[in-house]
């Protein structure tokens, strides 16, 4: 595990180099293990941010970042902390009803030589892991898109994508929490309010809904 400093008030523990289910699982396990731990208060850590391959800890300025990094690494090291691990269950599973009538659905189908029904079936057939949340508040980055649905982003992004749009961008699928510009392929829509309950580490399942 490598340690990076993001300024003098944030350390990042790097678990791997690329986006993978395995790296994400390790990051999320560390995130769940540390979240709620008394160590956070002792070190003045006020925020933990899991990402695809790293876990960042933001703390009060004035603390030596290397002391924070060492303490976190020790807490996570199974050799030094064999059985002190608090029982950390998996995140919750969230089922999201999606109306699959996105403006790019037929084009995505065409690109892959599939029918729209095939695209919907592949998209609802997978189980997605929330690897991280960010960019915009409540924007979930999901791992688990069926490779058969990988679709390049739009050559020129749209000026406005509606909140709740379910979209595919490259190897990722995600949901827009608020109206914003965006270059992902929109395949459906959901109720954006539902995103506020989602945490990193949760599992998401989409199922087809006729109308919201």
């Amino acid at each position: 595990m490598e340690t990076q400093l993001i300024g003098d008030a944030c350390v990042s523990l790097v678990f791997g180099e690329e986006i993978s289910v395995e790296n994400s699982r390790r990051v999320l396990a560390a995130y769940r293990h540390l979240k709620g731990s008394a160590l956070l208060g002792e070190l003045g850590i006020h925020d933990l941010v899991p990402t695809y391959r790293a876990l960042a800890a933001h703390f009060e300025p004035g603390t030596d970042p290397w002391i924070v990094a060492r303490a976190l690494a020790e807490q996570l090291d199974p050799e030094t902390q064999p059985r002190r691990q608090v029982a950390v269950g998996p995140g919750k599973t969230v089922e999201i009803p999606v109306v699959y009538d996105g403006e790019d659905l037929s084009r995505v189908a065409e690109i892959h030589g599939l029918s729209a029904a095939d695209v919907i079936s592949l998209h609802t057939g997978a189980t997605y892991q929330v690897a991280m949340v960010g960019f915009k508040p409540f924007f979930p980055y999901l791992i688990g898109l069926d490779p058969r649905l990988e679709t390049p982003r739009l050559a020129s992004p749209r000026k406005r994508v509606a909140a709740g749009s379910v979209a595919i961008g490259g190897a990722q699928t995600g949901i827009y929490p608020e109206d914003s510009p965006g270059g992902w392929n929109i395949v459906g829509r959901m109720d954006p309010q539902q995103l506020q309950t989602i945490l990193p580490g949760d599992t998401i399942i989409f199922h087809q809904s006729e109308e919201s």
Binding site: I6, G7, A9, C10, S12, E18, I19, V49, T51, Y52, R53, A54, A56, H58, M132, G134, F135, K136, Y141
Partner: peptide, 30 residues
Amino acid sequence: NMISDAVADGTVQLTPKGPIVLLKHRQTVG
């Protein structure tokens, strides 16, 4: 190969149009 990762107050990101310094009402990853 930059993979979206955490940012902090004061992070200097190098975009194709030049550097941006993130202030307090920033995003959390970039």
